[in-house]
Simulated assay, not measured.
Amino acid sequence: MPLLENLPVGVDTAQWPVWSTTARLVVTDPAVLPTARRLVEAELLAVELACSRFREDSELRRLRPAAGRPVRVSLLLAELIEAALWAAEHSDGDVDPTVGAALYRLGYDRDFADLPAYRAELPIVVVPAPGWHQVKLEGQELTIPPAIKLDLGATAKAFTADRCARLVAERCGVGVLVSLGGDIATAGPEPDGGWRVLVQDGPDQPHCTIALAAGMALATSSTISRRWLADGRTLHHILDPRTCQPADPVWRTVTVAAEHCLEANMLSTAALVRGHHAPTSLHKPARLVTASGEVLTLNGWPA
């Protein structure tokens, strides 16, 4: 997971737990940190209330789609769904928000922090996802078949990192880095030397430090960070929409740099799904770590 390394003089940071991961906020003016944190925390809560699969009071959970008829959703949820559909289209369907029901079947039915390490007697159901083309969004009018359960987890975190970074830069007039787990977005002017980011899977694993320029983003997707056992199988949360089963762990992690965190996350997630074919489909600076720990870098990495 990427971590900020060696904070430059004159910046300040705050971090706190959120969404079974860590939110980290860094600003180039310590005086605005309390205000910036309030802005970020408010956005995180708004996104959670809009699209959490695990909160019964979230707008997504309370949706009651009517077959063939649109349901009006909030502007924020519409934007989150629009981001998920964008990722699906630009990944040729490898990042598909209609895998929600499959995640429930595999036992990922609650916040990961509350997930039992072992789930017994879960059926193996190999079927394709319903498909993102069945989701229609026109403005704030959403039309989906009632049987489809949306999962926006593959894109919502990256979308939110981008959104929070822009908001803090605009409202506070500073350079800012927002990290939500493996998703990092920056906005505004960079500190001296750029944003120094340590990219590492975990302790004693291959690592490197990169300088992330102002306005750039970084996303890491992993087959090892959110895993659980079920019926003797080790499962993870990155599903192949063609089978609705965890993607073959050809890669331990994939990290991608791009202009927006949403795009970086779409590319890194799709790479895990594509397995051995991933290197030929990546067109941004990327770092891929194999299941055995070997590192492959592409397209001018480090960014």
Score class of each variant (00 low, 15 high):
81 I>L: 08
62 R>A: 06
37 R>M: 09
284 K>W: 04
219 A>R: 05
138 E>Y: 09
191 P>L: 01
282 L>K: 00
92 D>G: 15
235 L>N: 06
100 G>Y: 02
196 R>S: 12
292 S>L: 06
185 A>L: 12
224 I>A: 01
184 I>T: 12
31 A>K: 10
285 P>G: 10
186 T>M: 07
248 D>H: 05
138 E>R: 14
253 T>S: 15
241 P>I: 03
234 T>L: 13
120 A>T: 12
213 A>M: 06
1 M>S: 05
198 L>D: 07
56 E>L: 14
76 L>D: 05
284 K>S: 11
202 G>S: 09
165 A>H: 11
210 I>R: 00
28 T>A: 12
62 R>N: 05
99 V>W: 09
214 A>H: 02
249 P>V: 00
129 A>P: 10
270 A>L: 07
34 P>I: 13
92 D>M: 06
23 A>W: 13
53 R>L: 10
295 V>F: 05
41 E>K: 06
288 L>F: 10
84 A>Y: 03
71 V>H: 14
191 P>T: 02
90 H>S: 01
272 L>G: 11
160 T>S: 08
257 A>R: 09
39 L>W: 12
267 L>K: 01
260 H>E: 15
16 W>H: 13
207 H>R: 09
116 P>K: 13
160 T>Y: 06
143 T>G: 03
287 R>W: 15
157 K>M: 07
281 S>M: 07
51 C>V: 03
213 A>P: 01
231 D>A: 13
8 P>Y: 05
159 F>C: 06
226 R>W: 14
211 A>H: 15
276 H>T: 09
218 L>V: 13
248 D>A: 03
100 G>M: 04
75 L>Y: 02
141 E>W: 13
35 T>E: 10
244 C>T: 12
191 P>W: 00
235 L>K: 07
136 K>D: 14
42 A>I: 04
262 L>Y: 01
138 E>T: 15
180 L>T: 01
190 E>K: 08
249 P>G: 02
96 D>C: 07
288 L>G: 09
124 I>F: 12
258 A>R: 05
28 T>N: 10
301 W>M: 12
178 V>I: 12
86 W>L: 14
228 W>V: 06
44 L>K: 10
236 H>Y: 00
4 L>I: 13
205 Q>G: 03
